Structure formats: C-alpha cells, structure tokens
Amino acid sequence: MTSAPTQPDVSALSFEEALKQLETIVRELEQGNVPLERSIEMYERGAVLRSHCDSLLKAAEAKVEKIQLGQDGKPAGATDLDQEA
C-alpha cells in the first residue's frame, strides 16, 4: 500500500494565511497547467485548507455571538444603543 505524501499541518495557519494558500491552489488548478497527480495533491490540500478556514470562521462567529449577548443571555442589540442616545 502506498502512502500519500505528508503535507504541512494547517492547524497553525491563521485564517488569512490559509485563505491565501487556498486561493493560490484554486488559481493554479483553474489554469489547467498542472499534471494530474499534482492536481490531485493540490485538491486534497485545498480541501484541508477549506475545512480549516471553515472551522476558524465558525469559531469567530461563535465569539461574535457571545459578545453580542448580554449577561442575561439576551441579545444586547439596538435597544441598548437607543438608551445611550
């Protein structure tokens, strides 16, 4: 059984770094000048990068949602802002 070449771990990449790598992969694959085997490797790497970006976005959304909720767990929305005016 052959093993796939190991790819660098993406867990340490920031969202911006991972997205930049993913954009580079997409651009190269869209040009169509990459040999088949390399295309497959790039596609696999892209899938890992996309999953990493998705996880980071979900974590960021959860943080924003938590920030937007007040101490009582209710949204601290426009009504709080209206009271400050």
Rank of each mutant, 00 (worst) to 15 (best):
S11E: 09
R38Y: 04
L49I: 04
Q7R: 01
E17W: 02
Y43V: 12
G73Q: 12
Q83H: 13
A76W: 14
S55A: 13
M1W: 14
L81F: 12
R27T: 04
E61L: 15
E23F: 04
D80W: 12
A85C: 09
K66V: 14
G77R: 08
T2A: 05
R45P: 01
S11H: 06
V10E: 04
G46D: 07
A62Y: 15
R38I: 06
G73R: 02
V26L: 13
T6F: 00
A76T: 10
Q71A: 09
S11V: 04
D9P: 00
N33A: 07
G70Q: 12
T79I: 15
P5T: 03
M42N: 04
Q31S: 09
E65H: 14
V48L: 11
K20V: 09
V26K: 11
K63A: 13
T24I: 05
L81N: 08
D72H: 06
G32A: 00
M42D: 05
F15E: 05
L13H: 10
D82N: 10
E30V: 00
A4W: 00
D80C: 14
M1S: 07
V34S: 02
E23V: 10
K20H: 12
L29F: 02
Y43M: 04
E16C: 11
H52I: 09
L69M: 14
Q7Y: 00
A47P: 02
M42W: 02
V64M: 15
F15C: 03
L22Q: 11
L29S: 00
Q21M: 11
L49H: 07
P5A: 09
D82M: 14
S3N: 06
L29M: 02
P35S: 04
M1T: 07
E17Y: 07
T2G: 07
K74S: 12
S55L: 11
A78R: 13
E37Y: 01
A4R: 00
K74G: 09
S39M: 06
P35Q: 01
D54T: 09
K63N: 14
G46C: 06
P75L: 14
D72S: 12
P8G: 01
K58C: 11
D72K: 06
S11I: 03
A59F: 12
H52G: 09
E41A: 11
P35I: 03
A18Q: 09
P5M: 00
V48A: 08
D9H: 02
L22Y: 12
D72F: 03
A62H: 14
L81Q: 13
P35L: 01
L57Y: 10
H52Q: 05
E16P: 05
P35Y: 01
H52N: 08
P75F: 07
R27D: 12
